Amino acid sequence: MRLRSIAITLLTSAAAVVAAVPAAADPVVLAGKYVALGDSYASGTGAGSYGSSGSCKRSANSYPQLWANANAPSAFAFVACSGAETTDVTAGQVSALTSDTALVTISVGGNDAGFADVMTDCNLGSDSACVQRNQQAQTYARNTLPGRLDAVYTQIRNRAPNARVVVLGYPHIYQLNGSCSVGLSETKRAAINQSSDVLAQVISGRAAAFGFTFLDGRPAFTGHEICASGTRWINSLTWPVDESYHPNSAGQRSGYYAILEAAA
């Protein structure tokens, strides 16, 4: 009976010790510090409600702000900015990262490849000029962009060694053979979508090389591109012109935020 009493006492004490030690938890689950980096697709340009962010056009409807609102991180640094290229991220945004950062999101690379010029040339030029400009952008994406992404991703990992890093890719701009009766030709739309495919391939490959999570914008926006018959989540040519061909508030919420919330 005495041995049994001692055993019960030891088991009870051990259980108390185990209960007193908190289980290891994912830092994102604990909603630690969150830093949002990147370009206009990350800042929410095209989704309205930019507050005092000036030309960076950081929207209250953007996926970073929506995630922060829903998850209440211990700190939130929203430094994504419209027009940003990879060099802008390394020069002016990564300083927001610290060793205690738990989550980093980033969308970048489209401006490096000349997305704005592609859309300008395709709106103003011929089919052949549009196709040629897209081919130039794709060549850049394959040959030069990987090194630029590596520079960004290296800085992120060095400055936030324990963070979960989520890289969000770009959607297709158009639904091919869709419901648009005016606007760009089907040849131009296909060329632009092909550039999105090349960007996705390159960005996902470099993200994987660093162990980062890649969230593909193409399936997230399927059925909601320009020329889709359903609700469109991407602006067509609009005013202000810099908000053209960017996700609107529905695209930020139902496209990007939805896949980010599911992943993080």
Rank of each mutant, 00 (worst) to 15 (best):
Arg4Thr: 02
Ile6Glu: 02
Ile6Gly: 00
Thr9Ser: 03
Thr12Val: 06
Thr12Lys: 01
Ser13Lys: 00
Ser13Glu: 03
Ala15Trp: 08
Ala25Asp: 02
Asp26Ile: 14
Asp26Gln: 02
Val28Met: 07
Gly32Thr: 09
Val35Phe: 08
Gly46Lys: 00
Tyr50Cys: 02
Cys56Ile: 14
Lys57Phe: 04
Gln65Ala: 12
Asn71Thr: 14
Asn71Val: 12
Ser74Pro: 00
Phe76His: 04
Ala80Phe: 11
Gly83Gln: 01
Thr86Lys: 09
Thr87Pro: 01
Thr87Met: 13
Thr90Gln: 00
Gln93Glu: 14
Val94Phe: 14
Leu97Lys: 02
Ser99Pro: 00
Gly109Met: 07
Gly110Glu: 04
Asp112Cys: 13
Phe115His: 01
Ala116Asp: 00
Asp117Asn: 13
Val118Trp: 11
Asn123Gly: 15
Gly125Glu: 04
Ser126Gln: 07
Cys130His: 05
Asn134Met: 09
Gln138Ala: 01
Thr139Gln: 15
Asn143Asp: 03
Ala151Ile: 12
Val152Trp: 14
Gln155Cys: 08
Arg157Glu: 06
Ala163Glu: 05
Ala163Asp: 12
Arg164Cys: 03
Leu168Phe: 14
Leu168Trp: 08
Leu176Asp: 04
Val182Phe: 07
Lys188Glu: 15
Arg189Gly: 07
Arg189Ala: 09
Ala190Phe: 06
Ser196Ile: 05
Val198Arg: 01
Gly205Cys: 06
Phe210Asn: 13
Phe210Asp: 05
Thr222Met: 09
His224Cys: 04
Glu225Val: 05
Ser229Leu: 10
Thr231Met: 04
Trp233Asp: 01
Ser236Ala: 13
Trp239Asn: 12
His246Phe: 03
Pro247Glu: 10
Ser254Tyr: 15
Tyr257His: 13
Ala258Gly: 02
Ala258Ser: 13
Ala262Cys: 02
Ala264Ile: 09
